[in-house]
């Protein structure tokens, strides 16, 4: 089992006042690789309270035909003749997020987990294992993280910059493997 880790601080929101009650929060990311799954920990100020399992399951096992769950007829060539349209597979819909611990009604978390899984499928796994990202790569992630990362604090508006936080967390995960 191979372990990676990365530690940084959440950037303060742009509008946070000087006496920001949100003192700088430490974000700690650690991953342990097994051959059947990857255990990922994302801690905010050392805390983590919810766990999700993300596995890439398209329709394949059920109907055992290799039809991806979703995709769109992406138009490849510049000219618009029809035959050349080739099926562009939408990988984001192949993931299944199971809440092992925590609030399963939280709408933000499945999005976060799917984005992390897609980051792994497209960037990290090819880099770590050295093989290209094939289409039907099956893998699973076990993510333990703090739900406070996505919870708006009192003074911030509801979805202050969740997207910014998500991009920041993804960047941290990527940097963890960069060293």
């Amino acid at each position: 089992m191979i372990s990676y880790e990365f530690q940084t601080h959440l950037p303060k929101g742009k509008d946070s006042s000087l006496n920001a009650s949100s003192e700088n929060k430490e974000l700690y990311v650690q991953a342990t690789h097994f051959n059947n799954t990857i255990l990922l920990q994302i801690r905010l100020n050392g805390e983590m309270d919810s766990t999700y399992e993300v596995s890439s399951k398209g329709l394949n096992p059920i109907l055992d035909i290799n039809v991806p769950l979703a995709g769109n007829l992406g138009n490849t060539g510049g000219d618009y003749d029809d035959e050349e349209e080739e099926f562009v597979r939408d990988h984001l819909s192949d993931y299944q997020v199971v809440t092992k611990l925590g609030d399963s009604a939280d709408p933000k978390v499945p999005v976060v987990c799917v984005q992390i899984a897609e980051l792994y499928r497209r960037v990290i796994l090819p880099e770590v294992s050295g093989t290209m990202a094939q289409d039907n790569m099956q893998f699973s992630l076990l993510i333990s993280m703090s739900s406070k990362i996505w919870r708006a604090t009192k003074e911030q508006s509801a979805d202050d910059n969740d997207f910014g936080k998500l991009v920041f967390v993804l960047k941290c995960i990527k940097d963890m493997y960069a060293k």
Binding site: M1, F34, N35, N36, L39, T51, L142
Partner: peptide, 12 residues
Amino acid sequence: LNSSSSLSCYYY
């Protein structure tokens, strides 16, 4: 060489 250990139980 390759790590063949697999995660079999995760308890909280």
